[in-house]
Computed example of a mutant assay.
Amino acid sequence: MYLTQSTQAFYENLPVSADFDVMADPARYIPLPDDWYVGVADIVGSTHEIARGRYKAVNMVGAAVISAQLNAAKQARLPYVFGGDGAGFAVWPAQKGAAEKALDAVRRWARSEFAIELRVAMVPVRDIRAAGRDVRVARYAPTESVDFAMFSGGGLAWAETLMKTGRLGLREDVHGEEAPDLSGLSCRWSNMQARNGAILSVVLKPSNGVSENDFAIVARDVIGAAEKTEREGHPVPRNGPEIRYPPVGLALEAQAQHGARPVWLQKLVLLAQNLMIWGLFRSNTRVGRFKPSQYRSSIAPHADFRKFDDGLKMTLDCDTATQGRIEAVLRDAADKGIIRYGLHAQDEAMMTCFVPSAVDEAHMHFVDGAAGGYARAAAKLQG
């Protein structure tokens, strides 16, 4: 039984590491308390939506799940992970009702604004353990201002599988028609061109029955292969991505934040706001505590281009040699029955952001490949 620290303080009190390599170590992960809840969300037919060219909308909906949960928790720290076409998270017992309300609201919003169907579910951690899986978390903090949760134990993947088969789900319309609070959700930055050759989306999962230690060895080898390239394959430029006017994601952001306003009116508001922002970045003009150059240089360290979520996912800017090293490691491990893996190469990476305020240092940036990314890599899982 894991009943200690069952409030939000559990996650806040976990040890923090700035070294991503150690996130492969199963010993770094701490079991969630039994009375916590795990939430999962996944877009129905995401590969079809991506094939229609709607990958920005797919990423926006996936990031909206996290945005809604953070706002529902009033910015309290909670463990979450962005999956491209969905997301996973965990909340303490007192947050369960607000988390369900936010999930249901995002589901209705995705349907009404984008005609996208979103599966959502929540399940007690104790039920996951009763099914023979676990949910353990670790905190990776690339900077002092932001951290990202890593998940292990198979519980997140188990819940998502049951949700996709219809055996687990959140009943619809149990919380009325209130819109989700998506404050801070944005996608204003331009896509990021590959500098080294290609943006490679990497997804690897442990095969059934494989120990966490055996999977960790493969994960370390893949991370090591990626680290041999420039900036460990980080796809976000050191000084941040390019910003254009009008921003390419303006229509999506208007649909996310229009509330009671007509979408067209929200677009006009955003056009005016973004014109000012574009001007500040172009001229590098400081306004109060906001320093454009400082903000841009902080984007890359705050971007989640690699993560553990019952497996390993990475969005890498890599050359042919690096891609070859990664593929060699993956093929060998798959041949030995240790992993299943999928790869998808594209020309650009994209970013969807959660920015509580322009001067808040805890801004977060969710990275994916700009032509299908994780969803297309996952669809190619083999081994």
Rank of each mutant, 00 (worst) to 15 (best):
330 L>T: 12
121 A>N: 04
339 I>T: 03
309 D>C: 15
95 Q>D: 14
18 A>E: 14
93 P>G: 05
268 L>K: 13
225 A>H: 12
347 D>G: 02
60 M>I: 15
54 R>Y: 11
341 Y>W: 09
42 D>V: 11
233 G>E: 04
64 A>P: 09
217 I>T: 13
282 R>A: 06
359 V>C: 02
189 W>C: 01
210 V>G: 01
79 P>S: 05
304 D>A: 03
206 P>T: 00
283 S>H: 11
64 A>N: 08
16 V>P: 08
54 R>C: 12
195 R>G: 10
360 D>S: 09
51 A>G: 10
174 V>W: 08
184 G>M: 06
300 A>M: 08
150 M>F: 00
12 E>A: 14
362 A>P: 02
134 D>R: 02
149 A>Q: 00
281 F>T: 13
12 E>Q: 10
51 A>Q: 11
365 H>F: 07
101 K>S: 09
45 G>C: 11
356 P>Y: 03
220 R>W: 01
28 R>P: 07
342 G>M: 02
294 Q>F: 02
58 V>L: 01
50 I>A: 08
319 D>P: 03
130 A>M: 01
98 A>D: 15
293 S>D: 13
80 Y>A: 05
377 A>V: 07
318 C>I: 15
128 I>P: 00
89 F>I: 01
285 T>L: 11
185 L>A: 09
238 R>D: 07
380 K>Y: 09
297 S>A: 07
367 V>A: 09
293 S>N: 13
122 M>E: 04
231 R>Y: 08
211 S>L: 03
295 Y>R: 11
172 E>Q: 06
140 Y>H: 05
207 S>D: 04
366 F>M: 05
95 Q>R: 15
100 E>A: 01
50 I>Q: 06
298 S>N: 08
152 S>F: 03
198 A>Y: 08
149 A>L: 00
341 Y>R: 04
349 A>L: 06
252 L>G: 11
227 E>W: 10
327 E>S: 12
45 G>R: 06
116 I>H: 06
275 L>Y: 09
309 D>E: 14
215 F>N: 00
182 L>T: 02
250 L>I: 10
92 W>Q: 12
313 K>G: 05
